[in-house]
Design a protein around this nucleic acid. Structure first.
Length: 307
DNA sequence: AGTAGCACCTGATTGC
DNA sequence: TGCAATCAGGTGCTAC
């Protein structure tokens, strides 16, 4: 999504903002009105992403003051939740908004008008205009930006799994702390971000780690193997445009990704493991559907997990 | 401080 | 056929 937006919105300016469902700006102080006011008249820099959080720094007039060094001070921040998507329509005659359209931005750029719709069936996603704050380590905030700035609501989120500035030692130290199972720790976005329920199961399968393994019991070396597996899975998925498997998950042009065909564990309960032929198990762990091979991914200790 | 549980929503599918 | 139950890719707040 970030890559798709980059080529379309960088350098455009906001002409109009139509919030079609108030709740999509529920995290905006002042609500939809303040959101629109902060955006209209501003122009967009290149979108940046950290984990599942994306933002577009604001330049120029409108609600977009700049710092002394010219760095942006605010950004349009977006989270897709479970079912959010952006759809872009070039030209002056966009289609009627989809029933799931929660907000519509009208942009003007060098190549004419662009309509940007934010769709979200389940409405867990949201849009805000937020101040930018400095990163803790002073390094560039994320993929897509040279600035060491993140939206305030993203400050507590760890660096993306594919971020070159991710501190592997620090991540492994957090994993070894506490009492939680590794599956749950992977889904916690505070140490390393971007790992969702699908990629957690895929990385654990690849690293041959049982999802119920106490994170603290992962040997230092094995934790490194798992972090590498996370990066491999996510890099391959990203190269294929994501793991879309229905119309809810598409890029800005409405196209699906292709990673779903490469899934080894997620959604394959009852099917043969491609490594050993054993049937993949499925169970709900910590409220999330979890899939693993009971042979390749041995349970850590008797009685700590089913299978 | 770390962790569990629930709340926030809609709509497609499954089961009775 | 109709209706209820179940399920889904995530995060944040509150209470323990």
């Amino acid at each position: 999504m970030r890559r798709g937006l980059e080529s379309l919105v960088a350098g455009t300016s906001v002409v109009d903002v139509e919030v079609r469902r108030e709740s999509c700006t529920r995290r905006q102080p002042g609500g939809a009105g303040a959101f629109a006011d902060a955006l209209v008249g501003a122009s967009f820099a290149s979108p940046a992403r950290r984990g599942k959080f994306m933002w577009v720094p604001l330049l120029g007039s409108g609600g977009a003051p700049r710092g002394g060094d010219g760095a942006p001070l605010a950004a349009l921040s977006a989270h897709l939740g479970m079912s959010g998507q952006f759809r872009a329509f070039p030209g002056d005659t966009p289609p009627e908004p989809h029933p799931h359209c929660r907000a519509r931005l009208t942009l003007a750029g060098a190549h004419g008008a662009l309509t940007l719709d934010f769709l979200d069936q389940r409405t867990f996603g949201y849009l805000t205009v937020e101040p930018l704050v400095a990163t803790r380590d002073g390094q560039p905030a994320a993929v897509g930006t040279p600035h060491a700035l993140v939206p305030s609501s993203v400050a507590h989120i760890g660096r993306d799994a594919l971020d070159p500035y991710l501190d592997d030692h620090a991540v492994r130290a957090v994993w070894r702390r506490g009492e939680r199972a590794i599956k749950q720790v992977l889904l916690d976005q505070t140490a390393v971000s971007g790992i969702g329920n699908i990629y957690a199961d895929e990385a654990l399968w690849r690293a041959k780690v049982h999802p119920g393994t106490p994170a603290a019991s992962l040997a230092e070396r094995h934790a490194g193997t798992l972090l590498d597996a996370v990066r491999e899975v996510m890099a391959r998925a990203l190269a294929q445009g994501g793991t879309s498997f229905d119309a809810l998950y598409v890029n800005v042009n409405g196209e699906s990704g292709y990673f779903a065909r490469d899934l080894e564990a997620y959604g394959r309960g009852g099917h043969a493991c491609s490594r050993c032929g054993t049937l993949i198990s499925r169970a709900v762990m910590h409220g999330r559907s979890t899939h693993w091979c009971p042979r390749c991914q041995r349970r850590p200790r008797a009685g700590t997990a089913r299978d």
